[in-house]
């Protein structure tokens, strides 16, 4: 009987290992740090390479109760959304490895306000943080510079750095000991280029997380999926500028979709609202985990549970038979 040889590919590249957060010994105040990256094969193919650690799950909390979130999400969190510290604690209990603090857009938003909010969150959790500004260039710069200084040495990920707006954020990361999230619009070459621009400013590649932009299920997910597969293949083939760990935001994208937001006036074939909405987020996230995501940012606690369950089994090496 002929024996089938396990078909293995040879890769000579490796995803960079990046650590989020810093403990007291490392100049921060975090109770623990989280390291991502280090893969030497495609996602979870333990039979041909190293997957040294699971992808990390970040849960998004906002500085104040979101005005535009689906009721399905707000109900799941309950009253804690009224208070960022309480929300942060609840997110840690829901199984987050990392907390993503997102500042929303409102009149009170100022550098001082941002410092205060950050303080509350730092006091509420010992987990590493990712901090995103409200998404408008000037405000992002104001908020992130203040936050970077206030949390000096904590080794946050600051975001979002885009090609039109990365200098101030990168400078703040350099000055105060943080990482950055480099986001580009679903394109392999744009992603490489931004990594180069940022590292040219002097920020080591060990401090850049790459965000290839996420499309929700049904709204362009497959574009992000294929760009991520191509980036990961390039990284494994040895292209040094594609070897950053990847961060994606399936929670934010999926919950913008009508399927997740609308409970009424939708076709009957869409089925139960909560079931559909949570499936929308988990399927978007799980598909991106399979294409190489190292950090997934989620919103619903049930999605966190399901994606964690999937990752646990994918890391169990049950598929290694030889």
């Amino acid at each position: 009987m002929p024996t089938i040889e396990v078909p293995k590919e040879k890769w000579n590249g490796k995803v960079r290992e990046i650590t989020l957060g810093a403990t007291a010994a490392e100049g921060g105040t975090r109770a623990k740090t989280v390291t991502v990256g280090g893969e030497t094969t495609l996602p979870f193919l333990h039979f041909e390479g190293e997957i040294p650690r699971p992808p990390a799950i970040a849960i998004e909390v906002q500085d104040r109760k979101p005005v535009d979130w689906s009721p399905v999400l707000l109900e799941a969190w309950g009253d804690v959304t009224e208070d960022v510290a309480a929300w942060t604690k609840a997110a840690a209990e829901a199984g987050a490895d990392v907390i993503l603090l997102k500042f929303s857009l409102h009149d009170e938003l100022s550098p001082d306000y941002a410092r205060q909010v950050l303080r509350h969150v730092l006091d509420a959790t010992g987990l590493p943080l990712i901090v995103f500004g409200p998404g408008q260039a000037d405000l992002d710069n104001d908020v992130l510079v203040a936050v970077a200084e206030e949390g000096k040495g904590e080794n946050f990920v600051l975001g979002v750095c885009e090609d039109k707006n990365y200098r101030t954020i990168v400078a703040a990361a350099l000055a105060h000991g943080h990482l950055v999230n480099a986001r580009t619009a679903m394109d392999v070459n744009l992603a490489k280029q931004l990594n180069i621009l940022i590292s040219d400013m002097g920020l080591p590649l060990e401090r850049i997380v790459m965000d290839p932009t996420t499309g929700a299920l049904g709204y362009g997910m497959e574009y992000g999926y294929s760009v991520m597969e191509r980036l990961r293949l390039a990284a494994l083939q040895g292209d040094g500028m594609t070897q950053q760990p990847m961060l994606v935001t399936p929670g934010e994208e999926a919950w913008r979709a009508k399927e997740a937001r609308a409970g009424e006036g939708v076709p009957q074939a869409w089925g139960d609202w909560a079931e559909r909405a949570i499936n929308w987020e988990t399927l978007t996230a799980s598909t991106l985990v399979e294409s190489g995501a190292d950090i997934v940012v989620l919103r619903h606690p049930e999605s966190v549970k399901r994606v964690r369950g999937m990752i646990d089994v994918l890391m169990s090496k049950s598929g290694v038979t030889s």
Binding site: W270, G271, D272, A274, E275, R276, N279, L283
Partner: peptide
């Protein structure tokens, strides 16, 4: 079989 599951799939 459940619509809320097969639709996303």
């Amino acid at each position: 079989f459940s619509s809320g599951t097969v639709y996303p799939l």
